[in-house]
Nucleic acid binder design. Sequence first.
DNA 1: CGTCTATTTGAATGTACTCAAAAGCGGTGG
DNA 2: CCACCGCTTTTGAGTACATTCAAATAGACG
Lengths: 189, 189
Amino acid sequence: MHDLILSNFAMHIALNDMETRHIKLNLEYKTIKKNEVLLNSGEVCRNIYFVNKGCLRVFNTDADGLQHNILFCPENWWCVDIASFSAQNPAFYTIEALEDCEVFYFTHTVLEKLYEEIPKLERFFRILTQNGFNLYQRRLTSNLSKTAEERYEMFRSLYPALEQRITQKHIASYIGITPVFLSMIRARK
Amino acid sequence: MHDLILSNFAMHIALNDMETRHIKLNLEYKTIKKNEVLLNSGEVCRNIYFVNKGCLRVFNTDADGLQHNILFCPENWWCVDIASFSAQNPAFYTIEALEDCEVFYFTHTVLEKLYEEIPKLERFFRILTQNGFNLYQRRLTSNLSKTAEERYEMFRSLYPALEQRITQKHIASYIGITPVFLSMIRARK
DNA sequence: CGTCTATTTGAATGTACTCAAAAGCGGTGG
DNA sequence: CCACCGCTTTTGAGTACATTCAAATAGACG
């Protein structure tokens, strides 16, 4: 049951048996249905989620009521509103299930305690944050320099399996165009 | 001389006299001339810079040879290609001085050593990375949802003093439009 | 003072959006 | 299992936002 998340930790840190057991004990688990909301914009983000099965999306709703997806989290991804989680203040983003999901999560309180008990975990999440920082920096750069068609191709190579699982309207929102225009891009191939 | 950088540390961590002295001893200092390059895309980013005076820009040059600014670093900002610095592999970005500058910096080797000696520093840079992560996430969101004119207003409110110091062409590149179009936006006010 | 670069202005073009209508698709209930 | 409803995708026409190219003007720097 914990295979995926343990292999995820192992990507950046080495945990011994005792640490592994301790982490498992502190890890919560839950299943959520498609369209269920894990975090609402305006609420405090109390948990950091690991997607074991299914797919989440992170989006913001702008002043005109339009939704903008900034991230998809399929299996093996971590998902959180980092600003809200780390400062425990109201979230800017909403997190919602695109499919039925199974997630593990740490509450903020538990994670702070675990940082003391297993300092390696702090390192793990620092690396995760760094990678995310870099990912967004790169995406910002490509949004500044590339056309919608090129961004669509980038999405397809970043998430090759995901295109079949989520609707075009969500992909369009992620790359920053209207669903109508995405349909036109796809038509001219 | 160290006033600004010490107050910057104090924003997130409390250092005692001994730690402060130790950090000062490990901190390098240098002055650079306008247009001088601190890091070239393709080189390994060996240093993490703190801007004490002047202003740096971070940009990437795309396949067509066009430059795209992703960040300005005036006084009191940290500046680094985080992916290159943390993994010590070739940088994606170039860092260049927009004005004559004074910078402090840690080399990668020294910082790794300092993390062991003063663990609070690891915390400091984790928070810095988190803030940066959040900043880029927000900018990505606003680039997806706002027009050029709105993004220009956002730039002005984020960097109020900077507009007078840097050229329009660099601002245009930062908000992702051509200098010509920025000039038109400014004209219709 | 002259040269080089940045900015402005104008016209033509292209990229992406809005609005509207039709077609496709998935889930639900009879 | 089919019919219906709601949502997504497609298609088309007209429009707005932003770009390119070109030329003129202004500014910065040696």
